[in-house]
Simulated assay, not measured.
Amino acid sequence: MPDVNGWEISKATKQKNDKIPVIILTGWGIDVPEEEAKRRGADYIITKPFDLDELLLVVNTAVQSISK
């Protein structure tokens, strides 16, 4: 994404509809405190490397959060 970054997309997504769960998948290996991630529009952060079970758990949790 040459003109924007994931944080900008997550924040814009939440501005459009704050009920849409946003998952950031990063290879930067950053450790972002949960409250900062929420402030920046991300509900979940997955860092690489990750395993499929971890990804499926986060996606399932995100989908479940929509119906609450």
Rank of each mutant, 00 (worst) to 15 (best):
E34I: 12
V58H: 01
L57A: 15
V58L: 01
K38A: 11
I46N: 05
E35R: 10
L55H: 09
K38M: 11
I46Q: 02
E36H: 12
N60G: 15
T47N: 15
G41L: 09
D43Y: 02
D51V: 11
L57Y: 09
V63A: 13
T47S: 15
V58T: 07
A42M: 07
N60A: 12
R39L: 06
A42K: 00
T47V: 13
N60I: 01
D53G: 06
K38Q: 08
E34Y: 11
E35G: 04
N60H: 12
Q64K: 10
A37Y: 04
R39C: 01
L52N: 09
P33T: 02
P49W: 04
N60C: 04
A37V: 03
E34V: 14
P49V: 03
V63D: 00
K48P: 10
A62S: 12
L55N: 05
L56A: 11
Y44V: 00
D51K: 08
K48D: 01
R39M: 03
L56N: 14
F50G: 01
T61C: 08
P49N: 04
D53A: 08
G41K: 04
E35A: 13
K48I: 05
K38D: 07
T61Y: 05
I45A: 06
A37W: 03
A62G: 08
L52I: 14
P49K: 05
V59W: 07
R40S: 10
E36P: 04
A37H: 04
A42F: 02
F50Q: 01
G41Q: 10
D43R: 03
R40H: 09
A62E: 02
F50M: 00
L52W: 12
A62C: 11
I46Y: 04
D43N: 10
V59N: 05
K38I: 13
V32I: 15
L57W: 05
L52Q: 12
N60Y: 06
L56E: 14
A62R: 04
P49I: 02
V32D: 08
L56P: 02
R39E: 02
V63Q: 10
V63L: 15
P49S: 10
E54Q: 15
A42H: 03
L57R: 11
L57S: 13
V59E: 03
G41W: 04
D43M: 04
A62D: 02
K38R: 15
V32M: 15
L52S: 09
I45M: 10
Y44W: 07
A62N: 09
V32C: 10
D51C: 12
L57E: 14
V32R: 05
K48M: 06
K48E: 09
L56G: 10
L57M: 13
K48S: 08
V58D: 00
I45F: 03
L52P: 00
P49E: 11
D43C: 03
Q64Y: 06
A37G: 09
V59T: 13
Q64L: 09
E34N: 13
T47P: 08
D43P: 05
Q64V: 05
F50C: 00
D43H: 07
R40P: 00
D53K: 11
L55D: 04
N60P: 02
I46R: 01
E54C: 08
K48Q: 11
A42C: 12
A42Q: 01
E54Y: 09
Y44D: 00
L56M: 14
V59C: 04
